[in-house]
Structure formats: structure tokens, C-alpha cells
Amino acid sequence: MNSLDPFLIILQGLLRGAGITAVVTFSALALGLALGFALSLFRQFSPSKLLHGLIDVYVEFFRNIPALSHLFILYFGLASLGFRLSSMGAAILGLGLIGAAVTCDIFRSGFKSLSPGQTEAALATGFTPLQTIFTILTPQAMRIALPSLGNFAVQLLKDTSVVSAIAAPEIMFYARSMVTSSFQTTLIYATAAGLYLVMSLPLMQAVRMLEIRYGRVK
């Protein structure tokens, strides 16, 4: 027995949740990016005012209400209608839907920052509107959006800690359950915080490289 033992036992316990944290982060990220990109395309390029209004309502609702509140509606609320989601399902769906609202705004500001001349020139040289959107505008908007998307991913990784409140077995969930059995509260939560930090550092480094590469940092 040496003095590092309690720490290692705690770390081992918390690592059981790290996999779920990663799964929830990546799944919610994928859902958020796909849905958010689709929403931004419709919001930016569809002529329908009704669709614009609906997307705006979606974005406002998901951006002005806390994640915890959405998760409770999905997990406890829907269950009362007989619509039972697993805690993982509710976690991924909830964070993904919120993520879609956030990334929709990020993609849109990417599209909005492109000069209208791009579209006009592409159409004038014979690109169809869809070709213009996907081969001319999207790659440029992506470049502008990348650093913000990276920041969103870092935020999302941290936000997965909230899903412990609906009993998804990720890092924070194990931390809380270990506290009730071992009473080494300070060490357990400090280790959990450190584990999140270690997981987000590579992501943060990637964001910094994107920012330097795409010229946000002067």
C-alpha cells in the first residue's frame, strides 16, 4: 500500500464512465452537426418564410432554455406519456437537439460572411443553385465556422457531465456514486475535474490550431 493507492482506485472507478462520456459527446456532436447544418441550409437558402420562422423558433427555444430542463422533459416528461427513452438515448437526443440550434447559428454566420458576389459569379458561370451551395459556398463557410465548431465541441464535452442528472453512467455519475460509498469527496471530485481537463486539453489544442490556421488569432 502506498499513498497513491486511493487516487488510483478512484481514477479506475471514474474511467469506467469515460467511455460513456466519449460516446455521448461524439453521438451528440454528430447529431448536432448534421441537424444544425441541415437547418442552416434551409434557414439560409430556402425561400419559405414559414420554414424560416419555424427554424427561428426552434433555435430560440433550444438556446434560451437550460440543457438540464430539456433533459428532464425528454427523460421524465416523455416517460409520463408512455414514451420511454433510455437515459443514454435521452442524453444524446437532448444534447444533440440543443447542439443543432447552436451549430445552426454557427453555420449561418459562416454563410452570411461570404460575399454575395460568390453566389452571383457561380450562377453566372453556369453552376446550378444546388451546386453553388455545396461546391462553392459550403467549403468556404465551413472554414469560417471551424474554430467556433471546435469551441462548441469542447463545451459539449463538459456539458455531458449534466446527463449524470438523468442517470446516464458517465464520469460524473460514477463520481457521485463513489462519493456515497467512500466519503473521499474532495479527492473524487478533484480527480473527476482533472479527468475532464485531460480529455478536453487535446480538443482545446486542436481548436487553437484551427484558429491560427484560419486566421481568427491575429
Binding site: 469542447v154 456539458d159 457531465s161 449524470s164 460524473m172 471530485y189 475535474a193 475532464y196 478536453s200 486539453l201
Partner: peptide, 9 residues
Amino acid sequence: GVPLLAVLF
């Protein structure tokens, strides 16, 4: 890099 929840706990 550290979630708010961990800080609060």
C-alpha cells in the same frame, strides 16, 4: 476544460 458541475460539487 473543467465542467461547471465538477466545480460546484
